[in-house]
């Protein structure tokens, strides 16, 4: 199980897409390729932009389909972050279905 603390990388307002891209390419995709499950821990993240979340997870949905959501857990998200993640996940499934 791979655990990533988003606040440690992106701060309390997660908006830097370059950091999201690095996490995706260096942590998320390699873990999924190794069949490792992932916990994205949003403890202490007060808000995130749609662009940040898109850069973090949209390619996972594109590459592995909706089933990837069985292998990625979004932990300790506040309401705002939950909604942004849901928007991106819905959007990717609508757009790539």
């Amino acid at each position: 199980m791979k655990r990533i603390e988003i606040r440690v990388h992106a701060g309390a307002f997660a908006e830097n897409k370059d950091i999201a891209r690095d996490l995706r390419l260096k942590e998320l995709i390699p873990s999924l390729e190794k069949n490792e499950d992932i916990v994205l821990d949003f403890e202490g993240v007060e808000a995130a932009t749609q662009s940040f979340i898109h850069a973090l997870i949209s390619d996972l949905l594109r590459k592995y389909g909706g089933d990837v959501l069985d292998r990625v857990e979004f932990k300790s998200c506040n309401d705002t972050v939950k909604k942004i993640i849901t928007i991106v996940v819905d959007y990717m499934q609508e757009g790539t279905a």
């Binding site: 891209r21 749609q50 850069a55 949209s58 390619d59 594109r62 991106v88 959007y91 757009g95």
Partner: peptide, 20 residues
């Protein structure tokens, strides 16, 4: 929503959703 100059495809690219 969903239109970005980085791709003609719906859903954008891995880095751009076209939603900002």
């Amino acid at each position: 929503p969903g239109i970005t100059g980085t791709t003609p495809k719906e859903g954008g690219t891995e880095q751009n959703a076209g939603a900002g």
